[in-house]
Every structure is written in C-alpha cells, then in structure tokens.
Design a protein around this nucleic acid. Structure first.
Lengths: 237, 237
DNA sequence: CGGGAGCTTGAGCTTGTTCAACCTTCGTGG
DNA sequence: CCACGAAGGTTGAACAAGCTCAAGCTCCCG
C-alpha cells in the first residue's frame, strides 16, 4: 500500500483519533484491489464479509425489487460502505458496483468487530460515522418525500456545483441514467427536468452544466440545511 | 419513577448490557413527563438538548419544507429518538409531536455524551442502536423509491397485522391522514388505496381493517425482507 | 463511414394530486 | 333529547406529474 493511501485512510472519520496500533492491525490483513468500471463488488441479500473503503473511483450503491432498480447513494474517495451491516453481522441491504475504475480496500468484517471491542477510540469514531450516515439517510428520505423530481435535480445541481469548486459550472461525473436513478426518476424525466430548469438559470451541453444565474436556480430549488447540506465529516466535540 | 418504567427502560437496546451505575446516572437527573395528545415535543432545526424515550403513547416524527409536510416515523413504547442529533451535538432534522397522551423520559444530551465516554458497554449498545436505525431508514428509502402508494399501504398492513398479533385483523392506531403522510401519499389517495385493496383481500370499516385473504394480499404486496422486516431489536453476537 | 450506446423528444397512458362537495361521526349546547 | 356544527373521511372530476414506448438524434469508437 502506498504512503499516499495511508494518508487517505487517516482522513476517514472512522480512523480519526484511533490508536496507530488499531489502524495498522486493520489494514495489515486487508485486501487492496483495483477493479475495472462496472464490477459488481457485492450484492444485496448477501452477508457482509468485508468493510469496503473507496480509495479511488466511484461506487454506486443500488437496490432492486420486482424488476425496478434504484440508486441509493454514489460514493467517491474517501468513503466507506456497508459499515452498519458489518457491525450487525447481517446481510447487505444494497448492491455495490464500480462506476469507474476503482481502488478499494477490503477489511475483514470480523476484524472490524474485534477492533471495535478493543479500541475505545475506534468505537467512538464508529459512533460518529454511523450517526452521520443515519442523518444523511434521513435527509435523503425527506428529499424524496417532500420534493418533486425537478426540485431534487435543482438541489443536486447546487450541491454538486459547490463541491466542484463553486465556479458556476459542473460536470456530471457519471451517466445521466445513473443520476436519474439516484434522483428517483426515469432517464426521460431527467431530460425533461433539465429542459425545465433552463428557465431557471441552467444550461446543459452533454455532461457539462453551466449555472448561468445561480440566484434564479436557488429561488427555484429552495435548498434547506435540513435536507441538503452534507453532514459534517468531522465530529465536533 | 415506577419500577415498571425501570423494567421498560432496561428493555431498550441502548441500555442492554450497560453497567447498573451508568443506567442509574442516566435516569437520575432526567425528567419523566406526561404530555397530552398533540403536544409538540421538539421542532426541527432546534438543538437537541435531550435524548427522548417514549414510555407510553405514540410519537410522530415529522418534517416540513415549503408548506408540505411528511411523517418520517411513528414511535410507540419503548423507543428513543434524536439519538443521532444528541451524539453529534447538532440540530434536529425532525419535529416530534405526541399523537396520544404520552409519558416521555428526557435525558440531558450532555449527560449522554459523558456516559458514552465513560462506559464502553454503553457505547457499544449505542453503536448497535445507530446501526439498526440506519438500516431501518435505508429500508424506508427503498420503500419510497421502489413502490407505489398502494404497495406501500399493502406492506404496511401486513407488518401491522403481524405486530398486532397476526389474527388477520388490525386497528389503525392513529388518524388516517397521519398514516397517509407516513406512507407518502395524500389522505384522498389513501382512501382510494383501501378501495383498490378490497380486490386483494382487505376489508376496512373505520379504523378497523380485516384481512380476509392474507395470501392474496401477500401476492399483491410482495413483501421483502430487504425492505419490510424491522431490524432485530437485539444485537446478535 | 457505419454502428451502437446513450440521450432526447413526442404521444399516450398511469398514477397521484387538488379542489370541492358530501357524508359520517361525535360532541356540544339549545 | 334532539339539532347542529366541526372534524375527519370519502368520492368525483379535473389536472399535473411521472412513466412507457417508440422513434430519432448525437456522439464516440471502431
């Protein structure tokens, strides 16, 4: 593992303030693997044998029922997934698939559970990670229940613009059909959503989006810190 | 506080296996209060000063944006709420309101955070509680994104029938408009949902629901353990 | 240059919402 | 004790949002 990877891992909430020994024991027996785009990392309804950490690339968390499929979350570096299933020693509620070539660290689930019992600081970091994940999911639920498709798109654009530097433009980092599934709409409806937003300060060309009048877009989207702002990645104390 | 209440509290996931001392310290300075139906216990966007535990009655967790309101969760005894906000020392994402007369224990938030640092077993219990809450919310998100209104209703009926004894009938424990908001539909649409389900083995009269043909209802609802089954309230180990 | 994948557009349809009227139940006051 | 009113629930009609299907477009890549 590269020194640069170690640095990345230490940025994770879940390793913050953790004993060096715990950290070393966690990564020593773990697999660092590179996967091509489109690899299925795990499928829902399977036991969670590893905790996964994305070091590079994008991973889509999805779920399906009766033919329909939806995207729950899309993770970039550095993020972890299926922590809750690992802790509960339970099956996964979501499938995971790489959207781009990706480098992923896989830590054996029982090792995580061992370390949890041994290192109080690790446990504390896990508590904050879970609390944040929970709050993010509640926000997503509100997003789905309280807003229309076009509103969800508008707010996603605002969030993405900010995280891509706040320069008034952004690049959609994956296929539009995936964005559509994440936003809870069909690809067709996403297209129409973009057309509708052209009246509210948004120009789109391919995957390139220009927000020509951000005030107008904000007026339309009505973003709320109770729905949109990401949970702080650092626990305050 | 009654002995019976102490028993109830000890049933909570979050106090399971916790030191007697921690438990006593948690409840000693806490307020046990009775509220009439319709009391607003807390409003979203406010700091979380207490951890709330429902000992009797029903509490509705809701959220609103731009005029619209939705119900996120409905809690009976014995359940806790806003644990995540308490741990993060952050604002609440949801409002809480009693639906019936209710008895609620309120534990000061900073006390919770203190105890967390002192009692490793308490922290461990909190980890499992949070992991379960997270998984429940992911399931609810899937419920919303993957199913139609009538399907959500059908699956809610199946879950409720089971938790009310599995006798093929159930009583809706609150107003239908609240059920509608919880299921993510309008009151009118809920009405139509019930009419539609009469073709799938469901009879309704007032708040009384009879499931005359549960096989038929299951065929229609297609319940899934990845969406519907409640998270186990006891961590396995 | 041709082919294919992803995206867009349009038409028709399904689902869900809105608004208004009406019905039912229940509690209150004449 | 009945009458009335208010609140919750249901029903219907019109409308809006979203989905499906099919056709056509664009862009990338061989």
């Amino acid at each position: 593992m590269r020194a640069e990877d170690i640095e990345k891992l230490k940025c994770l909430n879940v390793f913050r303030g953790v004993k060096e020994n715990t950290f070393q024991r966690a990564i020593a027996p773990s697999f660092l693997q590179s996967f091509p785009a489109g690899t299925i990392l795990l499928e829902e309804n399977r036991p969670a044998d590893f905790l996964y950490i994305v070091l590079d690339g994008l991973v889509e968390m999805s779920s399906s029922a009766t033919g329909d499929e939806t995207v729950i979350e899309i993770l970039g570096p550095v993020n972890l997934f299926i922590l809750a299933a690992v802790l509960n020693n339970d099956i996964c509620l979501q499938s995971a698939r790489t959207l781009t070539p990706a480098r992923i660290l896989m830590i054996p689930a029982n090792l995580i559970r061992e370390l949890l019992a041994e290192d109080h600081d690790f446990m504390k970091a896990v508590v904050f990670e879970l609390a944040s994940a929970y709050r993010r999911t509640v926000k997503e639920l509100k997003n789905q229940k309280l807003r229309s498709g076009a509103e969800r798109l508008a707010n996603w654009l605002l969030r993405e613009e900010r995280s891509q530097g706040g320069e008034g433009r952004l690049t959609i980092p994956y296929e539009k059909r995936i964005l559509a599934a994440y936003l809870g709409m069909t690809a067709e409806n996403l297209s129409r959503g973009f057309s509708a937003l052209s009246a509210h300060g948004v120009n789109i060309k391919g995957l390139q989006v220009d927000i020509v009048d951000i005030g107008k877009l904000i007026d339309y989207a009505r973003p709320s810190p109770l729905i949109d702002d990401g949970e702080p990645r650092l626990p305050r104390d």
